[in-house]
């Protein structure tokens, strides 16, 4: 390498890392400030110049949220809704995705194409009649009304199908010749084989349900039943001035999903790349 080339390489690397630091700081700053402000004393975040770090870190807002404002209950609601949706979605979408990939039945491809076309329809179009349906089933202000419409997802079926296409037919046929029922084949051969995509599907469903806002906002009317995002949006109406308190609430809402993502990153990323290729 000539000296000029080496210098060009070095300045390039410096520029690269500088860009990385700027980009990274912009990504993290809002989240770091949220965390920092949540430990500030009341009023400390509304000073000029803005405080970046708490002078005397305090947990008073967390205590307030879990005590007086019962945020723990909303966290439990969110956890319940997201967990039940995830378990149901796994069972329902895994079996459908597998069948669309590997089982032959009349009308399969036409059904699948119709479903793919359905992906283009925005969910908001269905929302108004869906609300009336939920209401006539007596599921307004009921977790069932939040959970049931989210159980089956076209995206989830796509994801599993894509993965299941790679299962060798011989493997399945061998089990069938040994006398295994289709259900048995699914349970003892297919499910273990597609485990990675199930992890992806579970993670996506859990995070999407935990983060969802519009549908729970519509279905849940009783304060005590709110999920975290709905409760938080309500809280900011009454406590808009209590910046530090609101930041603690935001931390409680965001932290579980961030931790989950950091632990299971690999599966999440696979979902994005698989889903985009289709």
């Amino acid at each position: 390498m000539t000296r000029a080339r080496a210098r060009e390489f070095r300045t390039g690397t410096v520029a690269l890392y500088a860009a990385l630091v700027v980009f990274g700081a912009l990504s993290l700053l809002p989240l770091l400030w949220m965390l920092s402000a949540s430990f500030m004393a009341q009023g400390e975040a509304t000073t000029f110049p803005p405080a970046l770090l708490p002078r005397n870190p305090t947990l008073v807002h967390y205590r307030d949220l879990f005590g007086r404002l019962a945020l723990g209950r909303y966290a439990m609601n969110s956890a319940l809704v997201a967990t039940v949706t995830t378990i149901g979605a796994l069972a329902i979408n895994a079996s459908a995705g597998y069948a669309f990939a590997k089982l032959r039945f009349r009308g399969r491809d036409a059904t699948f194409r119709a479903m793919a076309a359905g992906l283009a329809i925005p969910v908001q179009v269905a929302m108004l009649p869906l609300f009336l349906l939920i209401k006539s089933l007596g599921l307004v202000n009921n977790y069932g009304g939040v959970i049931i419409p989210g159980l089956s997802s076209i995206f989830g079926i796509f994801l599993v199908r894509q993965y299941a296409l790679a299962i060798p037919d011989d493997l399945l046929d061998a089990a069938r010749i040994d006398g295994a029922s289709e259900f048995r084949v699914f349970r003892s051969i297919v499910l273990p084989t597609i485990q990675p995509v199930l992890a992806t599907l579970a993670l996506w469903t859990f995070l999407a349900t935990w983060n969802d806002f519009m549908w729970p906002l519509i279905v849940l009317s009783d304060d005590a039943k709110y999920t975290l995002p709905v409760a938080l949006a309500g809280l900011v109406g009454e406590h808009a001035q209590d910046v530090e308190l609101m930041m603690a609430g935001a931390v409680i809402t965001v932290l579980p999903v961030l931790i989950l993502f950091l632990m299971l990153q690999r599966y999440y990323v696979e979902g994005v790349t698989e889903g985009s290729v289709k």
Binding site: L20, F23, G24, S27, L28, L29, P30, L31, W33, M34, A37, A45, T46, T47, F48, P50, L207, W210, N211, F213, L228, P229, V230, L232, A233, V236, V243, M246, M247, G249, A250, T253, V254, V257, L258, F261, L262, Q265, Y268, V269
Partner: peptide, 30 residues
């Protein structure tokens, strides 16, 4: 680097929208 850039996407929209409300505060906002 990838995890840092991706972190905002997995966060709860309602929560970070509230955070940004304060970042955008005309007097005290960052």
């Amino acid at each position: 680097a990838r995890a840092i850039f991706f972190a905002p996407f997995v966060t709860t929209l309602v929560a970070v929208a509230i955070v940004w409300r304060y970042l955008y505060h005309p007097r005290y906002g960052l």
